[in-house]
């Protein structure tokens, strides 16, 4: 029996500190077998959640990175024309023998048509991520990353897959999922996702974590950083987030910075240290100056 607390502990074991909203969403997704749509600013651990879940629940991760112009040939399935042609070439003599029995052309065509399904079978089907995760023997985790980068057409394509966990292949019929995968969709909100897709998913918004959780995240990843330093750097970054920067530092920046500070062997945050490592936090020229100005106020 899975519980929310159990999920939190599971995730903690793979280095992901979840709050109760995240745990609830994951819990429901597992019980109700519904996809989760995760939105939030970049770098707060949307994809990280999927990875942590896959490793802690031991679901193999099947990842589909969306981009503009992605279509069913890249996401669901494709026919392997080359292989089909190769087989017809190799089987030519057998085919000749097989067809030579028939009296006239009409009969030959009928005989060939009877064997048609041979060339449109699973043998010649290339499984793309979604179909692969549906056909996986073990329950898998399907991560559809950055869905907002794809077009409307692709979103519409997902509707059938996500609500019924099935893929229609015209030549084969409907292929149903052997084990319904846990589906996680992430979006950075650069485009509005349609309501139809939203309705089929549970919705989880991951914002910036609160102070304690962020400190816990840093400590979980970098145990060698002492509590005080973690606290200091996290509260500094939280102030930086309020600065109206073009690219506010996110949790991933916090972790990068923590990494840098461990390498620099820091025990306390100083201005000099910040000046040396400011490029980890700020990724725009204007932001760089803002962070430095903040450091003048905050740090000694």
């Amino acid at each position: 029996m899975i519980t929310e607390q159990g999920i939190k502990d599971f995730l903690r074991s793979s280095g992901y500190i979840a709050d109760s909203a995240i745990a609830t969403a994951v819990f429901l997704a597992l019980r109700m077998e519904k996809p989760i749509l995760i939105e939030g600013p970049p770098g707060v651990g949307k994809t990280g959640l999927a990875k942590a879940l896959s490793s802690s629940l031991d679901f193999p991760l099947v990842r589909l990175q969306c981009y503009e112009g992605i279509d069913e040939g890249k996401a669901l399935y494709d026919w392997e024309y080359g292989k089909q042609l190769l087989y017809t070439q190799l089987l030519r003599t057998q085919l000749d023998n097989y067809l030579s029995v028939s009296a006239d052309l009409r009969e030959a065509v009928e005989r060939l048509a009877a064997e048609e399904s041979m060339f449109f079978s699973m043998n010649f089907l290339v499984q793309r991520p979604i179909l692969r995760s549906f056909l996986s023997e073990k329950r898998s985790l399907l991560l559809i990353d950055e869905i907002d980068r794809s077009g409307d057409e692709f979103e519409a394509l997902l509707l059938e897959c996500l609500s019924d966990f099935q893929v229609s292949v015209p030549e084969l019929g409907v292929i149903e999922a052997k084990r319904k995968p846990l589906v996680i969709l992430t979006s950075n909100g650069t485009r509005m996702i349609s309501d139809a897709l939203r309705r089929r998913c549970l919705y989880l918004y991951i914002g910036y974590p609160d102070l304690d959780r962020e400190v816990a995240i840093v400590r979980a990843r970098f145990p060698q950083i002492c509590e005080e330093l973690a606290h200091q750097m996290v509260s500094f970054l939280r102030k930086a987030r309020e600065l109206n920067m073009r690219k506010p530092p996110s949790v991933s920046e916090t972790l990068d910075w923590a990494n840098v500070l461990t390498i620099m062997n820091a025990s306390k945050l100083t201005r000099e240290m910040l000046d040396n490592s400011v490029g980890v936090i700020a990724k725009h020229q204007a932001d760089l100056q803002m962070v430095k100005d903040l450091a003048v106020q905050e740090l000694r």
Partner: peptide, 19 residues
């Protein structure tokens, strides 16, 4: 109360602005 809030939010609200 918070459990119910979380459960309802995850299932009923599908947009950040509506939270």
């Amino acid at each position: 109360r918070e459990v119910v809030r979380a459960l309802l939010q995850v299932t009923l609200v599908k947009n950040v602005n509506d939270i």
